[in-house]
Each structure stands twice: as structure tokens, then as C-alpha cells.
Write a protein that binds this DNA or RNA. Structure first.
Lengths: 179, 179
DNA sequence: ACGGACATGTAATTCGTTACATGATTTC
DNA sequence: GAAATCATGTAACGAATTACATGTCCGT
């Protein structure tokens, strides 16, 4: 439901046509979440079906169709923004899942996986930081904050990976080799 | 595809029946990701369709059906575990999306949203930490690491929220009130 | 005249998810 | 004997995603 809510929020800022929603969405999220145009239209269909959005046919042919938010839509946006993102079950994260499951394959394999994931994360971190330095204020605050968000997550994942490795190593020592 | 890969990985550790997959999955992920049993069976159907898993009918009636991984399945697990989780586009995160989009509603509203999300995160953080202290080693390393993962993420989100607020405040001062 | 960005959509697929129905076995 | 857990599934829906088909407009 995140795309749906996001597009609705954009429409709450002002009516737009489909393609513009794609462009605005990607701009606002700093390009970290590419969005297939087709999905915009399918999502708009569902929003219309649910009465949160109405489409205005263009007066002259070959002009763009404009989508406008309804009062119900505005209420929904308000609800969505006010809701705490932490209350919903945490999303299934690929990295966490891989590490947790790899433990079942034995400690050695788990540590190998952690090491590989860590170097990939480190590479991504360096690349991201370099990019942030390269364009000190490129694309306004949204773009900067969006990239900051991923970098912060990557840093958190790295410290978590360290903790995983530590815990596994102390466990291996305690129990004798388990793998 | 994360559930699918996760169940396949569990089957790579040894054959199981459906319900056991649900139990094992939740145990391995420390209960942070509840899994509807029905989804196990639908996912198993798709895994069979793709030839990654075969089902062995029970010899006597009223015994459980056992699912076994195939060679193709094993290869797929290996591929999945080896793939870097950072290469795929970052998943659409609700918190990040809300903050980034709220900026479009003006700086005041954005800061209000950030404050609310922050207090929710802080509450979750305190609760989580208390729980970690309550059971120092409950449920083995997987459970501990799973909970650690969410806590680390929450901490990261908190520092990111601070950075967001800082950047918005300095922007407001620079441009004069924008909202 | 051509390519690329702009613009709108449809069809099909996959995955995740929920709700529901059904029954066996265990435990109190 | 009743409740909880174990166990297997089906039906249906929603959302995300991709691939495809079309066409306009603009710059070079």
C-alpha cells in the first residue's frame, strides 16, 4: 500500500497527470525507488475504484488527463501520514533473513555469508558517500535525505553484521565447533 | 520472493511438512515475522510447480505429507544466499516514504510528522530493549539476533530522523518560512 | 527524418496475504 | 468432553511488477 498512499499524497499537493506522478515520485524520493510508469496507471485505477481520486477528461483531445483527489482521499492521506510506521509488522528484510537462515547451515557457512554481505555493504557505503560528497546539495533536500536514509540503513546493517559474527564466534567457542 | 527462498532454505536443511515450516520459520526469525500457515502451502505449491520441491505422499493415511528439496532447489538456495542483498533496489520503506513526502506539505507539517514518528520509534526502542534484558538468552542466537536487527534499524531510523529535522530547520531559516 | 523524452494505457504474472473449512491429536 | 494445538488445504483478493502497444512532441 505504500505506492498507493504515496501517489495519493502527491495528488493531495495538487492535481497531476499520470506521467507527472511518476516523475514527481522519483524526484521526491531522490531516485532511490524507480517506479514503472505502468504501475502509476494501475494504481490510479484502484484509487478511482475506491473513490479516493477522480479523473478529469481533458477538454481537447490529445491533452493529458488530470487526476484530482477527493475528500475521502484527503482523509486517507491524513490517516496514513499520522499512522506510526513502527506499529505495522516489520517488513521482511532480505539481509536479515539471509543471515538468520544461514545460521542453520552451520557456523562456518554463516560467517562466510556474513563476510560476503559485509563487503558488499561496505562497497555500497563507500560509493554512496562518494556520491553524497560529489553533489553537496544536488536535487534539494529530498534527494539528499533519501540518499542519507539508505546510507544510514547500510551503516546500521554493518554494525548488526558485526554483532552477528561476534555472537556466532563466541557460540562456536562455547559449544565446540558446530558446523 | 523472500518467503519463497526462506522456505526453500529450510527444506535444504532437511525435509519437513507444511506446518513445521511455519513453526521453524517463526522460530528462526525470532517471532518478528509472523507467517500465516496458508501461505506456506500456497508457496509450496509454487515451489513444486517450479520443480524446486517435491511432495512425498504419506505412506499411511492421516500422516503428514513431507516436502523434499530437489537439486534445482538446492542450486536456487545457493544462488539466493550468495546474492548480495544490497544489489537489489532498496525496498520501499514506509517511514522514509512518509517523511520524504511530508516535506511537500510544508516544513511545519513535516517537522510535526517527524516528531510523532520519533516518539513512536523511541517507545518501540525502549520496549524492545527491556525485552532483550528480560530474556538474556531466550530462544537461542537466532531470536536474539532477530530482535537485535529490528532494534538496530530503529536506532538508525532515529538518527536519520534527527538529520531530517536538522536539514529542514536550517532550510527554513535560510529561505524564510516556506510553509 | 530520427531519436529521445513525454504520455497513456492494457494484459498477464507473481507474490503475499487473509479468510475460511476441515479434521486429527493432545492436554486439562 | 472441551479447548488448544497440530495439520492440510482452498478461494479469493490486492498489490507490485513487467512486458507490450501506441502515439505525441521536441530538438537536432
Amino acid at each position: 500500500m505504500t505506492i498507493r498512499s504515496a501517489l495519493l499524497q502527491l495528488l493531495d499537493e495538487g492535481e497531476r497527470h499520470g506521467y507527472q506522478l511518476k516523475v514527481d515520485f522519483e524526484a521526491r524520493t531522490g531516485g532511490i525507488w524507480p517506479l514503472n510508469v505502468g504501475q502509476v496507471y494501475t494504481t490510479l485505477d484502484r484509487l478511482q475504484r475506491d473513490g479516493l481520486v477522480v479523473a478529469t477528461d481533458p477538454p481537447d483531445e490529445a491533452s493529458q488527463r488530470r487526476y484530482t483527489i477527493t475528500d475521502d482521499g484527503r482523509a486517507e492521506v491524513k490517516r496514513w501520514l499520522a499512522a506510526s510506521a513502527v506499529d505495522t509488522n516489520p517488513p521482511r528484510d532480505e539481509l536479515i533473513m539471509k543471515v538468520l537462515l544461514a545460521i542453520g547451515r552451520g557456523h562456518d557457512e554463516a560467517i562466510a555469508l556474513i563476510d560476503e554481505q559485509r563487503s558488499a555493504l561496505l562497497a555500497a557505503l563507500q560509493l554512496g558517500r562518494r556520491r553524497q560528497r560529489a553533489e553537496p546539495d544536488g536535487g534539494g533536500p529530498s534527494k539528499r535525505l533519501a540518499r542519507d536514509a539508505v546510507l544510514t540503513r547500510v551503516e546500521a546493517d554493518l554494525t548488526w553484521l558485526d554483532r552477528c559474527e561476534d555472537l556466532i564466534r563466541t557460540e562456536t567457542k562455547a559449544n565446540g565447533r558446530t558446523s
